[in-house]
Structures are given as C-alpha cells and as structure tokens.
C-alpha cells in the first residue's frame, strides 16, 4: 500500500543537523530543499550534502523528496544528475511546466538505466507556482508517468498573479479548487501550500481544514511543530471512522442477503457513499488506527 502524504516537511538542504533528524520528526514526506532555502553560493555544497545524507542516513520511515532548482538555471540539471544517482523517492520540480517535466523524465530514464534502477522508480511531484502552470496543471501531470502529486506554491503563485497573499487565503481559493479537482481526476495527490506563520496553530488548523474541505489530500509544512496540527485535521475523526465501518458492515450484510441496494439509519446507501467509507477505512488502516483484518472492526 502506498504511503500517505498528509504532510510534506521542507528541510533546508544545507543544514547537516536538520538532515540528520529529518526522518524522525513525524512527517510523512520530507522535502530536502536545494532551491529557495539555499543561497547561490551554497548550491554545490548543499547538493553534495543532500547526496551524502541520502546515502548515509536511514530515511526508510519517510518519503524522501528533493526539491531541485529550476531546470532553466545552471543548477537544476546538475541537481538531477547528482541526486537521482542516490535514488531519492521523489523529485519536486519547481515552477513546473510540461516541457520541464518531460526533460526531467528523460534525464531520470537515463540515470535509472545507467544505475540499474527499475525504470520509473524515481517519482516526480510538480510544484505549481505560476499562473501558466496552474492553468496547464492537467497537462503537467500527464507529462510523465512518474507523477505522483502536485504541490501548490501559494507564495510564488500570488506573486506571479500580482495579488496579495493573506492568512485567510481567499486569493488562492481558485488555485486550490483547480489543483484538487485535476489531481482527483488524474488520481495523484494534491498537496496544499505551507502556512507561513509558524506560531499560529489556530490559523494553521483553519487553513488546513479549508484545504481539506476543498479536496486537497495533504499539506506542506515549513516547521516540524506544524505537523501534529495538520495530521489531526487530515485524520478521520472517530465518528467518521465508526460511521464508515457501519456502512461497510451493512454492505456486507446486504451482499449476503443478495440485496442490490440497502439503507442505514433510514438513509439510502449508494456507490459514492460506499466509496467514501472505503476511503476513510483505508486511510485509518494506513495510519495504523485500525488493523487491516476484518476482525479488528
């Protein structure tokens, strides 16, 4: 079963102490950042440090994602060349458009062949942070079979749109909708932009709930202290889980009795409701909240 991406935690790629502890902070995915967190003078040393970290440190409990520099800079292609050879789980491609994704895909094909890695084993997440990228997100996702998700970059996107970024986030309402809908359509994860006030947990909770409510499946974080709040928003509540389990039990019962459709508490249960219940239970199993065996219900 594929691991969840409720949280993707950005970690600067130039800080050895943080790289050492990155895996134990509780995030589902860690994004080792070679782009914005690293100044121009440290691009090469951070790249080497991240490469060595992936080679040396036990990251088996998390998804290791490396945010490379844009491919139209001198650093981007070198990042792919060096980092892909130590086989991170995923590359995060900034300011992604179709052409960039195809280029990375091809570079990865070659490296995987040369290194003897299974073809397509290194995945890609597209960072959507321009108006063009947003409008073209369907094609961006389709540009590579490696694509497992989209991360919405609210700060750069609003800058590109020439609008103010606010805590309330109304200005990215459309972007969130668009990303969530397209990702759902193409069955990849939709990861929300980070909440930048690291001391405002109430604001973070509201912002995360807003994103979840629009259909985003996870959220990026810029501080480990944000993880618990995000996880709690994305975790199904006990009531949701109980209800989902009751639906599935009722469904089994109906199947035994050969009933095509059935009702629970006087409400008609149809395919979308069953799908939703299955998703909830599935997520709880992945989170270890319940065991996967039927008996544990």
């Amino acid at each position: 079963m594929e691991k969840l991406r409720r949280t993707m935690l950005f970690m600067p790629g130039n800080n050895p102490g943080m790289l050492q502890d990155a895996a134990i902070l509780g995030a589902d995915s860690i994004i080792l950042d070679l782009e914005d967190a690293v100044s121009l003078t440290e691009k090469d040393s951070a790249r080497i440090l991240v490469r060595e970290a992936i080679k040396t440190i036990d990251y088996s409990q998390v998804e290791v994602v490396v945010r490379i520099n844009p491919l139209d800079t001198e650093f981007g292609p070198q990042d792919v060349e060096v980092i892909a050879r130590v086989k991170p789980d995923t590359l995060l491609i900034p300011k992604a458009d179709e052409e960039e994704i195809r280029l990375v895909d091809k570079l990865l094909d070659n490296i995987e062949r040369e290194e003897g890695y299974a073809a397509g084993s290194i995945k890609i997440i597209a960072l959507i942070e321009t108006a063009l990228g947003l409008e073209n997100v369907y094609n961006v996702i389709q540009a590579s079979k490696r694509m497992v998700g989209v991360l919405l970059g609210g700060e750069d996107l609003t800058a590109d749109l020439g609008i103010e970024r606010t805590k309330e986030g109304e200005e990215i309402f459309y972007a969130r909708n668009k990303v969530a809908t397209v990702c759902r359509a193409l069955k990849v994860d939709a990861i929300d932009t980070p909440f930048t006030d690291t001391n405002d947990y109430e604001g973070l909770e509201k912002d995360t709930a807003k994103a979840k409510g629009l259909g985003l499946t996870g959220k990026s974080a810029i501080n480990p202290r944000q993880l618990d709040t995000i996880h709690s928003v994305f975790a199904p509540t006990e009531a949701e889980l109980k209800h989902a389990l009751r639906i599935l039990d009722a469904m089994e019962e109906a199947e035994k009795e050969g009933k095509g459709c059935f009702s629970l508490d006087g409400k008609m249960i149809d395919a979308p409701v069953i799908n939703r219940a299955t998703c909830t239970v599935d997520q709880c199993i992945r989170l270890g909240l319940i065991s996967g065996e039927g008996g544990a219900r």
Partner: peptide, 8 residues
C-alpha cells in the same frame, strides 16, 4: 523548548 527533537 521549541526544539522539534526535544518535543518529540
């Protein structure tokens, strides 16, 4: 403390 490791 705000140190994430200490908090874990």
């Amino acid at each position: 403390t705000k140190d994430p490791v200490a908090l874990i």
